[in-house]
Design a binder for these strands. Sequence first.
DNA 1: TTTAGTGATTTGTCTAGTTGTATAGATGCG
DNA 2: CGCATCTATACAACTAGACAAATCACTAAA
Lengths: 239, 239
Amino acid sequence: MPRTLIWKSIADALIADLAAGHYGPGDKLPTEAQLAARFDVNRHTVRRALSHLADAGLVLARRGAGVFVAETPTDYPLGKRVRFHQNLAASGREGEKRILSLITRAADSDEATALKLDQGALVHVCEGLLLADDKPIGLFRSVYPEARLPGLPRFLNADPSVTRALANCGVDDYTRTSTRLTAKSAKAVQARHLNIAEGAPVLRSVSISIDPQNIPVEFGTTWFAGDRVTLVLGDDQRN
Amino acid sequence: MPRTLIWKSIADALIADLAAGHYGPGDKLPTEAQLAARFDVNRHTVRRALSHLADAGLVLARRGAGVFVAETPTDYPLGKRVRFHQNLAASGREGEKRILSLITRAADSDEATALKLDQGALVHVCEGLLLADDKPIGLFRSVYPEARLPGLPRFLNADPSVTRALANCGVDDYTRTSTRLTAKSAKAVQARHLNIAEGAPVLRSVSISIDPQNIPVEFGTTWFAGDRVTLVLGDDQRN
DNA sequence: TTTAGTGATTTGTCTAGTTGTATAGATGCG
DNA sequence: CGCATCTATACAACTAGACAAATCACTAAA
């Protein structure tokens, strides 16, 4: 096996520079020629390191301009009047749901935070497909607190309707709060399920639902195939 | 194997504009500097695209005066074009924005339908960037009916706030209806504006806003950088 | 009113620098 | 040898900036 690869050590050095805050978001890195001189290597070797950083989303190169540090994420609030009238149903067709897996395990930190549980508390995790006309349009993963909904998996297995399963567990009503939407690139596994190309655009929805006592009962994430689904917010139905 | 050449995609966008009738024979195109700003590109790159159109006999450039659409009754290469990307648009009412271009022209069929106008009616078209902390997070394109909002461009130029500009035109309030969300891949020009990689996931929002009399006053589309933006739908609603 | 002039705007041209891509060769290693 | 890494060179695409030349809008003078 080759000892430390030169381009990799250069990439590490550059990442260290970024981590040290030596270059801030939007800043221009030294030119490839300058970096090549600094590390005393060929420009292509520097390019391989930079390409590694670009793949990781740390930098962005613009031909003729230079290589720039990537911007940091930001939240963007929608107008206050926006509401979900027609929730995450795709293009009006009747949604079908197919459960792929249903297990009970300890919650990770994100799930515990979302459901306001102690870390390590048990949760039911249900993963499955959303179908329209027998075509996969979305992939979902829902997490439910086991303590609040002990018998949920049995009900869900018998009937995939979340509403009825929750009702059987004593949750007569629940409402969605804080839906977050963003665009992502499909991972390999997701792409397989949705029958799309890896890296294709995917609309990710993360939501938390609460019962009338404001206790979280569901932490759900859904990935929609971007080219197959349009979420409609509001009252107008057009196509 | 070069990927999409920027000057070529700009040329295609301009040809699409011509084919859509946004500029008629004899009309003056925006200046090279304005086009450069609109496509976020160097003036030379715009010049290369324009030179391509000039070679094809679609436009004619006059030093000191501008670039004009050729008078020839035109056989536009409508080969397989149809609907290109050069679209941006507005979504949120809050937030900082920077206007890249602001023109008044005849509405195409989609715009006329959305705003319930007769085809050929004049519309104001505003394209620009949404910013957060001086970083671009979204691209917008908003279309307004000229008949309802005659002086809008002047107000928008003085103050990019849509709310205040509409108020100055007599629209005291407006609400959004029928917001459509889907995930797309960033086109070359969009990627440049948003400082993301070509093909990176983008969240597209298409919306129509109406005044209290239910008359459409804005038809907007916004492309959000998927890595940088999360849309937050705050309120509660049934699931 | 007409003319000339002034300054801003716009296209045309030039030089230089930077990243993207392609091809070929050198080097080290199993 | 076969393969991966790195080097070397050349060119294309795009950016950046500066300046010249043509045009236009406006003003002042004849």
